[in-house]
């Protein structure tokens, strides 16, 4: 357990110290979301209608920006080799990296979502559901992303391939995530959607570290 938390702590420390990752994903998220009213037009009813989808898609893309660094930085400076020689199973090591990615790159997006939701005229009922849906569903983004990150470690222009590999797999989260918010806005029960999102997260929690670890073994080989 000591190894797990030391790695988690180091990754967070690095993110805080470098800072740029935080601010860049956040700025990207804000700018990407801001483009929609400019593209679709300022009409409030339309914005309210598309706001759940816009926020989810924005979060997906913002998350994608930092994914390729998940193992790449460690690979480049030789840390990945060392990390793989630790005493904890590789899958757990991967889980520590995933947790760190979620905490440093995805969680800040959730924090800023209410403000963006307001700017898109999302009804109040939707905002709470949006946050809950993101909290329950967004771990899938880091988890599935880890597979793509592991498979593209060490590649030139791995980021583009990563998007191609990972985005189709994000579709279920997007669909259920948006549906949860729309249900809340329509004053329908949100519970089932949130349960589905949690189910996706739990399923991904079990399977993704296995696949990502297999990918990493390949990367150092």
């Amino acid at each position: 357990m000591g190894s797990f938390f030391s790695l988690l702590k180091r990754d967070i420390q690095l993110a805080v110290r470098q800072g740029s990752a935080f601010t860049m994903t956040l700025s990207f998220f804000v700018i990407a979301v801001t483009l929609f009213p400019l593209g679709v037009g300022p009409e409030l009813s339309i914005l309210a209608r598309i706001s759940p989808g816009v926020l989810w898609v924005g979060a997906l893309l913002a998350c994608l920006l930092t994914l390729d660094r998940m193992f790449q930085a460690d690979f480049e400076d030789g840390s990945l080799d060392q990390l793989m020689l630790g005493s904890m199973p590789l899958e757990i090591m991967v889980l520590a990296k995933i947790s760190a990615h979620w905490l440093t790159s995805v969680f800040p997006l959730i924090l800023i979502t209410p403000i963006l939701a307001l700017s898109l005229n999302m009804p109040g009922e939707g905002i709470g559901a949006m946050i809950l849906a993101l909290l329950l569903g967004s771990p899938v983004l880091s988890l599935i992303g880890a597979i793509g990150a592991a498979l593209t470690v060490g590649m030139r222009r791995g980021g583009v391939l990563l998007s191609l590999l990972v985005l189709p797999l994000y579709i279920p989260v997007l669909i259920f995530g948006v549906a949860a918010v729309e249900a809340a806005i329509a004053v329908l029960p949100v519970g089932p959607h949130l349960l589905l999102l949690s189910g996706l997260s739990l399923g991904a929690l079990v399977l993704c570290p296995l696949a990502a670890a297999a990918g990493l073994r390949l990367a150092v080989d």
Partner: peptide, 29 residues
């Protein structure tokens, strides 16, 4: 954990100090 491997690359994080880097690895191992 019976061996230590020193590779070409230094496995150091440029943003961390020498002590911080070493302390991380010693905690990790």
């Amino acid at each position: 954990n019976q061996f230590r491997y020193i590779a070409h690359q230094d496995a150091l994080k440029p943003a961390l100090t020498g002590t911080e880097n070493l302390r991380f690895w010693s905690q990790y191992f």
